[in-house]
């Protein structure tokens, strides 16, 4: 019992981190809170499904195309919508939430509901760790999740674009006076965040069916992790994912699954009362944000 909680808590935490990483990255760099994030996640899932089942592409090709497509969609969202309201936080939230709502409800309207909308797993099969069964897909999630987080860390510190990300996250005007085109980099950050949402979707969605409602859940989970960890902090995202991930599993194990959803909501309430900027929030001076 304890073993199951520990192992599945770990997997659950990585899933939460995967979901929140893109949302947090975009906010950390360009200050844009992308509330269409959950919709992009679901859109990527349906895109893969459509490419496999209606167009007949093989899964790996469909997956890669979906990531690229979602990233381009993010870029378009920035250039066509966000550019005009940049810096006005409420307008950004309303605009992106509106776009997200439109996407999700469009899928519902087009009849994308039902049990046939599923994505294939990467590899079939399962593994025993001690007395606990783990299917391969969950191992993929853990492996890719950890390498993505590490890759992002290295990317933001050792590549030109990554360093430019860190620059405009800290001081846009200074970055601009050094020749870093802040509009282009901010657009890239939204595209990156959207691409990460697509990767998360392709990894996580095979565990169940793709449903429109999950788009809202993903947004809530991403926000919960980011609020608790502190918006824009990658360290915060990881710490908060593990806190919520294990709290959910422990609640699930000891008081039943129907209490699980409440955990993240209660955690949000507590953190807003005790430390509104989150555990690693940027309000804390000189804080690592990316």
């Amino acid at each position: 019992m304890l073993e199951v909680t520990i192992i599945y808590g770990f997997i659950n935490s990585i899933i939460l981190a995967l979901i929140a990483l893109g949302f947090s990255l975009t906010f950390g760099i360009s200050g844009v809170s992308n509330f269409a994030y959950g919709a992009m996640y679901i859109m990527a899932g349906y895109a893969v499904w459509i490419m496999i089942n209606l167009i007949g592409l093989p899964f790996p090709v469909a997956a890669i195309l979906a990531v690229i497509f979602t990233a381009l969609f993010g870029l378009a969202l920035y250039r066509l919508v966000l550019l005009r309201v940049r810096g006005m936080v409420i307008s950004e939230v309303i605009a992106t939430f509106g776009v997200g709502l439109a996407i999700l409800e469009l899928f519902r309207y087009l009849g994308f509901t039902g049990f046939e909308y599923t994505l294939p797993v990467f590899t079939d099969g399962s593994l025993m760790i001690g007395d606990t069964y783990i299917d391969h897909q969950r191992l993929w999630i853990v492996g890719i999740g950890i390498s993505l987080a590490l890759g992002l860390y290295l990317f933001t510190r050792y590549t030109k674009t990554g360093l430019a990300f860190r620059g405009i996250a800290q001081d846009e005007q200074t970055a601009l006076s050094l020749g870093i085109n802040s509009d282009r980099v901010a657009g890239l950050s939204v595209a990156f965040g959207s691409g990460l949402a697509a990767i998360a979707a392709i990894l996580i969605l095979p565990r169940g069916t793709i449903s429109v409602n999950e788009g809202y859940d993903v947004l809530i989970n991403a926000m919960a992790v980011c609020i608790i960890g502190g918006l824009g902090s990658t360290v915060g995202v990881i710490v908060a994912s593990f806190m919520i991930g294990y709290a959910q599993m422990i609640t699930d194990a000891f008081s039943g699954p129907h209490w699980k959803m409440i955990v993240s909501l209660v955690a949000i309430l507590i953190i807003l009362l005790v430390k509104p900027s989150g555990l690693f929030g940027k309000q804390k001076e000189l804080e690592e944000r990316i």
Binding site: R166, G167, Q170, D171, Q173, T174, L286, E287, E288, R289
Partner: peptide
């Protein structure tokens, strides 16, 4: 006012 990237 010497603008730098304070967190780097």
């Amino acid at each position: 006012r010497h603008p730098i990237f304070p967190e780097s």
